[in-house]
Design a protein around this nucleic acid. Structure first.
Lengths: 205, 205
DNA sequence: GTCTATATTTTGATAGAC
DNA sequence: GTCTATCAAAATATAGAC
């Protein structure tokens, strides 16, 4: 039944997108099925026709986000020059913060909480991929292309610096004294992070 | 009544400390008064003798944390050499992450949510203080002591990089493959952040 | 100051008509 | 597929005895 499936997919997407906005600010426990129903403009019991529980909706969203997070890693490959690869990685991460501030916040809250909604396998995959990319960075260090340091902590700094623009958006807006972050402000953020990271790891003079 | 007041303070503190641990993982809506009562080993209605509502308990904790966050800023003063001042600031922030991972997570969640529990005045004070410290950093830049950049974004990077060790503790533990973060691992984190930031902003060769 | 019992409201989820 | 009515459990807060 392709027609039916498509209709179902559309409704599911509508529910998921509505839920995202609520989860970002109010979190899992603070978001009620009634809020979701109203945001998706659907009667509450209807949600249960598409998802068996609130937890199910949440899990679907978290899984999608995890895949996005993983995707950014594609920039880090052994054949590239580290300066370009890392600059691109920072750019992709900050662009993601700009385009998906809501999604990033949900994922951040999930990590802070301890990722108990993802299965052990799903969490292990993140670790395995990180290990793989750390090996790439370590090779660049061994070749003398960048300063020697623990690649894992290098990534922690990158993640903290880039995700800040999405997760702590409210604080940034407050400090910059604006109601909305403009493209120019993201550009300044990107330049600042890129400059400090590249120069600080010996990739540019 | 000094004796009575002291007893009251003690109980209040007991309630606040018990609540902190719960808030860090489960958040405001995920933490029930019953959980707090059990963690503080007190009958539930007793909580209402000390605090008028759950929101009140939460507000007290957030206010305490805001004061800690502000305190770290004391490292940044115009009379100091930037290299030392900033290295110390990073150290104080990461030490705070090590000593108060629970408190840091609560504050992070509050900022992600949009700080709606703090009054406008309380939020404004954070901005005013940040402006003051940005002026100090800008002066160092004007004097040619460090690379020119937007001091506000410089602080965003510092906050993101240092708070990561508390807020995203679970992810760090997962990547490092450990159950608990040791002093040595915090030291490596401190060294990595300090190296990249100082070198990346032209404070060391 | 402390605690048992309970009022009140909210909320996740389901039954079952259309 | 959709939605009205409703259950059952949970959770905040209070009344009032001790």
């Amino acid at each position: 039944m392709p027609r039916t499936l498509k209709a179902r997919d559309k409704k599911e997407a509508r529910i998921l997108r509505a839920t995202e906005r609520l989860l970002a600010t109010r979190g899992f426990h603070g978001t009620r099925m009634d809020d979701i129903a109203r945001a998706a403009r659907l009667p509450r019991p209807n949600l249960y026709y598409y998802f068996s529980s609130k937890r199910q909706i949440y899990r679907r969203i978290i899984t999608e986000l995890r895949n996005e997070w993983i995707k950014a890693f594609e920039q880090i490959t052994p054949d590239r020059e580290p300066q370009e690869a890392i600059a691109d990685y920072i750019r992709v991460k900050i662009e993601y913060s700009r385009k998906h501030p809501v999604a990033s916040k949900i994922f951040a809250k999930e990590v802070i909480r301890g990722s108990d909604m993802l299965t052990k396998e799903e969490n292990d995959e993140i670790k395995a991929l990180t290990d793989e990319k750390c090996a790439v960075v370590r090779q660049w260090m061994d070749e003398g292309k960048m300063d020697a340091m623990d690649p894992r902590h290098f990534f922690f700094l990158l993640w903290g610096a880039t995700q800040y623009y999405a997760d702590f958006e409210q604080q940034i807006k407050s400090i910059l004294g604006v109601k909305r972050l403009t493209a120019a402000q993201f550009a300044t953020g990107l330049d600042t992070v890129t400059h400090i990271v590249l120069k600080g790891s010996g990739l540019i003079g």
